[in-house]
Amino acid sequence: MKHIVNKHPLAIRWFHWLNFPLLAIMIWSGLLIYWAYDPYAIKLFGHTFFKFFPEEFYQKYHIKRRLAEGMAFHFVFMWLFAINGFLYVLYTIISGEWRYLLPKKSSWREAWLVLLHDLHLRKTAPPQNKYNAAQRIAYTAVIVMGLGSLLTGIAIYKPIQFNWLLFICGGYQTARIIHFTLTIGYCLFFVIHIIQVLLAGWQNFISMIRGFEVTDTLTAKIIAKQTEDEKAT
């Protein structure tokens, strides 16, 4: 017999799907800004060993300097990205969803077991509720990263008005490096997230759209028991 198991509230699904295009536009517009001034490379003794975007890239794809356009999009969608993130965090606190998201003491050890299972080096995955240990760590980390991007972005955008924030970030260049590094982190998170979704299967993906998952009786009972235990802790 099949059972319907509720997984994701409507608010969580809205915040999740709104965040995807917002973050995509932020990364795209951020690249327009970066391509207008492309300073980062790995150099040693005056020799460049690695450059994120070599000159051949700009020549092949005819990349133009679109600084003004990039800044316009970036600073408009920055506020939408920040508002969506703030409302998401506020909802998780009010609704109690944070219990499923925050890492536990055992999460760091169990995350390695999840990784080994995903790599098919371990037969069974550690027990989980709505999210496994690796997801708890990743989803919490990306919220912290979002806050870091917002603060460093404001420091770069208004270095005079927010000189105290710029000082906390370690200066203009350091703030820009942190901001750039966090962008790389989002890209890595996105790739890993997609891989996890593919590994979890179609039911897991569709549950983030419709909010529930259709499963068998035994699985439904296990999920219900884990949910009760989670709420109790």
Rank of each mutant, 00 (worst) to 15 (best):
A155V: 02
S107N: 02
I42C: 06
F180W: 10
R99Y: 06
I137L: 07
L199Q: 10
A41H: 08
G146R: 01
I83Y: 10
G70S: 07
A232N: 09
I93T: 09
W202F: 15
S149E: 15
T140W: 06
Q161H: 00
M26Q: 10
A36W: 09
D118W: 15
K158Y: 06
K225V: 10
I223W: 14
R99T: 03
F52D: 09
H8F: 09
S106N: 00
L119T: 01
I94Q: 13
S95Y: 10
Y131S: 03
K2Q: 15
H179Q: 05
Y88L: 12
G46W: 07
Y139H: 01
P54H: 11
T92Q: 11
P127W: 04
L199I: 08
F205I: 10
L182T: 00
A133N: 06
T233G: 05
K43P: 05
Y34T: 00
E228P: 04
K105Y: 13
I33C: 13
F180P: 06
F189R: 00
E69R: 00
I4C: 11
P54G: 09
Y40R: 09
F180I: 10
Y61T: 00
V144C: 07
M1W: 14
L121G: 03
F15H: 05
F73Q: 07
I4L: 14
A41G: 07
P54D: 14
W35M: 11
W28N: 00
A133I: 03
L22M: 15
I27S: 04
A138E: 11
G46F: 01
V191F: 13
K2M: 15
A232L: 05
A68L: 15
T48W: 06
I223H: 12
V142M: 11
P54W: 14
T174W: 05
Y88A: 09
F52P: 06
L150G: 05
N6A: 12
W202P: 01
Q173A: 11
L101W: 01
F50E: 04
R65M: 13
Y88E: 12
H179E: 05
F205P: 02
L31A: 02
L10G: 07
Y34S: 02
W35K: 02
A155Y: 02
A141Q: 08
A134Y: 02
S149K: 12
E110G: 00
T233W: 12
S107V: 04
N163S: 03
